[in-house]
Computed example of a mutant assay.
Amino acid sequence: MSLSLYDAVIPSMKQMVGSIQGVLEKGAQHYEGKGESPDSLLTDCIHETMLPLTFQLNSVIHHSFGAIEGVQAGEFNAVSGLDTPDYAGFQANLAKAAQSLADLSADDVNALAGKDVMFKFGEMRMPFTAEGFLFSFSKPNLYFHATTAYDILRMKGVPLGKRDFLGQLQLKG
């Protein structure tokens, strides 16, 4: 069995975006159940040297569907001009990313194989192929920022477990 670019990237991106959607939903229910706004979570971070939940959520979006858009364009830039909506706005943005991933066809993603992608961060330039970029840069970043978002909510008392982080498993079907 050969593994296509689509198979190696898109299902796991959909799984992580979906898991963070579920984590945010549990966060909203938990805070609203306490009579508090989940918006208060957006500025929280794990450590003073780490970026807040807003950055983590933007990065989940940026390194999922945004990564595919970057490969399509041949250029991917560091997260900048961050979107900082309220909690419900982040939930809506994640829903858009999830839908955009679901709308991708295997043929369209597989056609990106071997394509050149340039990562730009200020003056720094890093040349990749689509596979190298997605496998060694965007997927690890997606998992890191999804984990950090999960950890922030868990640290703030939202009742989450490993199953919440895992999201929808890719079961035999």
Rank of each mutant, 00 (worst) to 15 (best):
C45M: 13
P11H: 02
A88V: 07
K14E: 12
F128W: 09
H30C: 12
V158R: 04
Q170W: 12
D116H: 15
Q91I: 00
D108K: 10
G70F: 00
K139R: 14
I152K: 03
S80M: 06
L53S: 04
N93F: 06
A102Q: 15
G89T: 08
F165A: 00
L104D: 11
D108I: 10
A111K: 12
A106S: 14
L94T: 01
Y150V: 01
A113F: 11
P38Q: 02
N141T: 02
L5H: 12
V79E: 04
A88R: 09
D103H: 05
L5S: 08
I61K: 10
V71N: 03
G35L: 05
D86A: 13
Y150N: 00
H47A: 14
L160I: 00
V158W: 09
M155Y: 15
M50C: 05
F135P: 10
S4H: 07
D86Y: 11
A28N: 05
R163H: 13
L94N: 02
G81L: 05
F119L: 15
L3T: 13
G27C: 04
K120G: 05
F76Q: 02
G27P: 02
I61N: 04
F165M: 06
L134H: 07
P85H: 08
G114V: 12
F55Y: 11
L5G: 11
L101Y: 03
N93S: 15
A102P: 04
S37E: 02
I46R: 08
T54K: 10
Q21L: 08
K156R: 14
I68D: 06
L57P: 01
G122D: 09
G18P: 01
V71R: 05
D107N: 13
E48V: 14
P140H: 04
Q21Y: 00
G157I: 03
Q21M: 11
D39N: 09
H145S: 01
L82C: 06
V9T: 15
P38N: 05
D107K: 13
A111N: 11
D83R: 10
F128T: 08
G27K: 01
E32R: 14
M118S: 14
P127H: 09
M124K: 15
H145Y: 04
F90D: 01
T147Q: 07
T148E: 07
L5T: 12
Y31E: 10
G132W: 03
F76P: 06
T43M: 15
S64H: 00
T54R: 15
M126W: 06
V9F: 09
V79H: 02
H47D: 15
T147D: 01
G18S: 04
I46F: 02
L142F: 00
T147S: 12
K115G: 11
F137S: 08
F137Y: 13
P140C: 00
V23D: 01
F135Y: 15
G66L: 03
D164N: 10
F119Q: 10
P11V: 03
I46P: 03
